[in-house]
């Protein structure tokens, strides 16, 4: 279980981006983090994986724990060894490496060659498409294949927590469907906690068990995925439905958002 206790993140020593965020991601569950652009979702993920430091950010308050062991202030490569792996948004494959080499790189922390081989076999089972392309340069894969590759690559480290940043970004709906089926399978087949950041709230709430909504560096809503999906604010701002359940025009939402920001 991954626990964030009231963490604060400051960039460049002055800019406060996360203002006390508490999130719990349970093993065997999918937890989703929703919110608009700039709400602090990716920053939250980077705080967990320790990659903030490279961007002049740091966790100044609160703690991040995996099963009670503190992780904040560990260098990012050690966080991976502890069992937390982040999948960046935007399908960051090593474009000049082949599919298989990408997987080998993902297994960097595995000291036994057997575990690397097993991991590769497991990935090909999960994504049979990748097996066909194993010796191709990953830069030439389609977007969907690349997304599969980065998820498979992250799983090579046998993580206990996987942080997925916008896996649906820029992909065709059918491909997104396929990837989300795999994400759902992950929580069933492996001893894994999934923390999923998504802009596509409908999709995320559909597969998640629990969810959080972020705005301006704070958690503003929390609850089970079903209760969030029923929440009228969520329906309006994230699912684009009005009270009767019909689709709302973008203009209405925009005006309402402006008013709401001003109040908060």
């Amino acid at each position: 279980m991954l626990t964030l206790n009231n963490i604060e993140v400051v960039y460049d020593h002055v800019i406060l981006v996360l203002k006390g965020v508490s999130v719990v991601a349970k093993t065997g569950q999918i937890t989703t983090l929703l919110g608009a652009n700039g709400a602090g979702k990716t920053t939250t993920l980077k705080a967990i994986s320790g990659l903030l430091n490279a961007e002049r950010g740091s966790v100044t308050k609160g703690s991040i724990e995996l099963d009670g062991v503190r992780l904040d202030h560990l260098p990012p490569h050690d966080v991976v060894r502890r069992g937390i792996v982040q999948v960046f948004e935007g399908r960051r494959v090593f474009a000049n490496l082949t599919v298989e080499e990408n997987l080998v790189a993902g297994a960097h922390i595995q000291s036994e060659l057997k575990r690397v081989r097993d991991g590769i076999a497991r990935t090909y089972e999960l994504f049979p498409l990748l097996k066909e392309r194993r010796h191709q340069r990953s830069g030439y894969l389609s977007g969907g294949e690349q997304q599969m590759l980065v998820i498979g690559r992250a799983l090579m480290s046998d993580p206990r927590v996987i942080l997925l940043d916008e896996p649906s970004l820029g992909l065709a709906p059918r491909i997104v469907e396929e990837i989300f089926v795999v994400i759902r399978r992950l929580k069933e087949s492996q001893d894994l906690a999934v923390l999923l950041v998504e802009q596509n709230a409908a999709l995320a709430l559909d597969i998640a068990d629990h969810g959080y909504v972020m705005e301006n560096g704070r958690i503003v809503l929390e609850g089970s995925a079903e209760s969030l999906a029923r929440n009228s604010d969520i329906q309006e701002f994230y699912l684009g439905l009005n009270e009767e359940g019909a689709r709302k025009s973008y203009r209405d939402a925009k005006q309402y958002r402006r008013r709401k920001r001003w109040l908060s």
Binding site: A54, P75, V80, R81, V85, F94, A105, S157
Partner: peptide, 9 residues
């Protein structure tokens, strides 16, 4: 950055 996220020092 991505290499670091794979646990590579």
């Amino acid at each position: 950055q991505v290499a670091t996220a794979m646990g590579i020092d």
